[in-house]
Write a protein that binds this DNA or RNA. Structure first.
Lengths: 208, 208
DNA sequence: TTGCTCCTCACGTCACGTGAGGTGGC
DNA sequence: TTGCTCCTCACGTCACGTGAGGTGGC
């Protein structure tokens, strides 16, 4: 019963499941002999926990309180959406974002005109990271304008994801909206697994 | 001096640097007052450690012995290339890979004809993961044949990376070969940061 | 009966984080 | 002198992993 969950999350171990129960995150039913018996709901809960951990980098403490609130019927804010760990809400002005990333002013302009960054009055932490990546790429001779095709490919990937969401997104209630986003993230994750393998195997072939 | 390294690796903290020194992974010089003084070589070493940790999921124990061997002039095998943690070397036959991934036989055929998986007599652990991802995508209505464009985009991305490597890959000695691959992985990582942000911000806009 | 998996409980471990209390440089 | 960063040392913590010793089902 236990190991049938692993296909989805390769990092799941029996020990981890026991740990999660000890921490009151899950409470599966027991057989007479004391064996854990996972209902479909329990499995769904574990799936939720693991994806919160992996995709949103949430510590178990936060996940616990979120689940506890949900169990109490409070329908709490989905964590990771806004104002969570990464998204500290700090804003950077144009000069600030450039300084933080160690970039040249022209790089930001190029990035904006290549649609890699969306121009605005103030930028978030993510833009700093993107700019840093662009600085590094520049050191390898890759300029933002070389990323136009890359940018277009991302756009097509988003189109693929969206088309898969159409059947889900018909409904308008709030919980299903959260589900749609969750699903979109999952699809993006699966595509990432596939791309990662294609790229890794290609890079592996450089040194045969 | 310390915080100037963080632009590259956002997860780096003073505490982590102290820890790394305590573990004998780095030994920066000290000023008269006891302050750590990082030479460019030290910085390069830290960069190496962090990328081994992040990109190859190596525990510090392995990194330590690798660096120790390298310090001793042994020029040890670069870890993570072959036979490391993920790549356990286990091979799967066609029926095995299908069963492990919980897929239908036709899915593997489709994946191969869409060039998402390379057909062979036996498959590695990665193929199992790719197939699992394809199974999940199928549940969202995305079939391997929908991934032809995706696959082509990956190919163009690889072309972009390769073109940036040309100046480096002229040389034929072994150490520079390892450097080329390391560099390729870095570039792929930076592109991933950029794509991740584009996708996340687009998915964020679904629920405004 | 023989394996096999599951169980609990205690302890270990890996990779840091967190103060307390103190010094050094401008 | 006032902040500021840096220091060490001890302890805490988070997320598990690892046996030891034992039971349950086919």
């Amino acid at each position: 019963v236990l190991a049938r969950l692993t296909p989805e999350f390769s990092e799941l171990t029996p020990s981890k499941l026991r740990f999660l129960e000890e921490q009151k995150l899950i409470c599966p039913a027991r057989t007479d002999a004391g064996y854990r018996k996972f209902s479909p709901d329990d499995v769904e809960r574990v799936r939720c926990i693991l994806s919160l951990q992996r995709d949103h980098y949430l510590p178990l403490k936060v996940i616990r309180s979120y689940l506890a609130d949900r169990d109490a019927g409070k329908n709490p804010a989905f964590p990771g959406g806004r104002g969570s760990i990464l998204n500290t809400g700090r804003r950077f002005s144009r000069p600030e974002v450039i300084r933080e990333a160690g970039a040249m002013p022209a790089l930001l302009n190029d990035a904006i005109s290549a649609s890699v960054v969306v121009g605005a009055d103030s930028y978030g932490e993510e833009t700093v990271k993107v700019l840093r990546a662009l600085v590094e790429l520049q050191r390898s001779g890759i300029e933002p304008r070389h990323l136009r095709g890359f940018r277009a490919a991302v756009e097509r990937e988003l189109g693929l994801i969206e088309s898969a969401l159409v059947p889900l997104s018909r409904r308008k209630d709030l919980t299903s909206k959260a589900r749609v986003i969750e699903r979109a993230r999952e699809i993006a994750g699966h595509l990432e697994v596939i791309r990662g393998n294609l790229i890794r195997s290609a890079l592996g072939r450089i040194d045969p």
